[in-house]
């Protein structure tokens, strides 16, 4: 991982640009999963633009899996920014002539695994991390972003246990803990889901809990990890972060904003940046 100081203000500028781009694309489609992308935004920016080692602008020795595949808009806009996906690819999002859908598809530029069904990404990430560390001998790191709802899948816990058994300390998972799933607020629908941190630690992981929208906190946590175990950063986030009417409102899990709502969202982002 890079030792040079992460530039937080550059990161914030990028995230603003990415949110705008996602809102632009929202005007072309009815279902977007935009809110799920907004909650993971800062963490995914830190991964791609802070942690992953790039041999060239588009070639990395590390890997990233968007295990919460419904948040892949954030991945698409970053891949576009890095020149791995084209503007045309994003303009044709969910269109018959295009290649990008609502979930990431392996084989598309920059997409290292197909996801969409929850509870699949961590297993693949463990297999990748194991191969890098033990077969190819200490090469890359594997980064993955999980949703909090995804932690209800048994397969996630199977793989949490295997990651610790296999000692894949080159695996770094980010939990996008926005506290919401389709049915509502997780703390109300599944109170025994909490506490999360202790559960993950009990499975043999090193963990930290930070504000997932604070890029300094995210960056510092990863940089100062002990690094002898698989690592999970629990990022407390806000679903739909950055657009007031989207924040913590279940319908925005799927919906795209109307033209009026789009204007309001862009204005709110502009206010934040000024």
């Amino acid at each position: 991982m890079p030792d040079d100081q992460f530039n937080a203000s550059e990161s914030r500028k990028r995230c603003l640009k990415y949110r705008r781009r996602i809102l632009d694309i929202s005007q072309q489609v009815t279902a977007l999963h935009g809110a799920a992308a907004f909650s993971a935004m800062e963490m995914v920016d830190c991964i791609y633009n802070g942690f992953m080692q790039w041999n060239s602008k588009s070639e990395s020795s590390d890997s990233f899996i968007m295990s919460k595949g419904h948040g892949c808009m954030v991945q698409y806009v970053i891949l576009e920014d890095r020149g791995i996906l084209s503007k045309k690819d994003l303009d044709l999002y969910c269109k018959p002539e295009g290649i990008l859908g609502c979930h990431p598809d392996y084989g598309n530029p920059g997409i290292e695994a197909s996801t969409g069904s929850l509870g699949h990404g961590l297993g693949m990430a463990v297999g990748m991390a194991y191969t890098e560390k033990y077969v190819l001998k200490d090469r890359g790191h594997i980064y993955t972003v999980l949703s909090d709802g995804e932690l209800q899948e048994g397969s996630t816990w199977e793989n949490m246990m295997m990651a610790a058994n296999l000692k894949v300390n080159n695996l770094i998972a980010f939990l996008d803990h926005n506290g919401f799933q389709s049915f509502g607020r997780t703390s109300e629908t599944h109170p025994e889901f909490y506490p999360i941190k202790e559960k993950v630690e009990a499975f043999g992981w090193e963990t930290v809990e930070v504000n997932g929208h604070d890029v300094n906190q995210v960056y510092d946590a990863i940089k100062t990890r002990k690094g002898n175990k698989p690592y999970m950063l629990i990022g407390n986030t806000v679903k739909g972060k950055g657009v007031s009417y989207m924040e913590n409102t279940a319908i925005w899990h799927y919906r795209s904003p109307s033209p009026e709502e789009y204007e309001q969202a862009i204005n709110e982002l502009d206010e934040v940046s000024s």
């Binding site: 392996y106 290292e112 695994a113 509870g119 699949h120 961590l122 297993g123 693949m124 990430a125 463990v126 297999g127 990748m128 991390a129 194991y130 191969t131 890098e132 077969v135 190819l136 048994g154 397969s155 199977e158 793989n159 246990m161 295997m162």
Partner: peptide
């Protein structure tokens, strides 16, 4: 993987994605 077949397949997929 122990008695964790979902993990067995997921890990195999990840390894195959890295060329195994």
């Amino acid at each position: 993987c122990g008695v964790a077949e979902q993990s067995m397949i997921g890990i195999a997929a990840g390894m195959a994605l890295k060329g195994m």
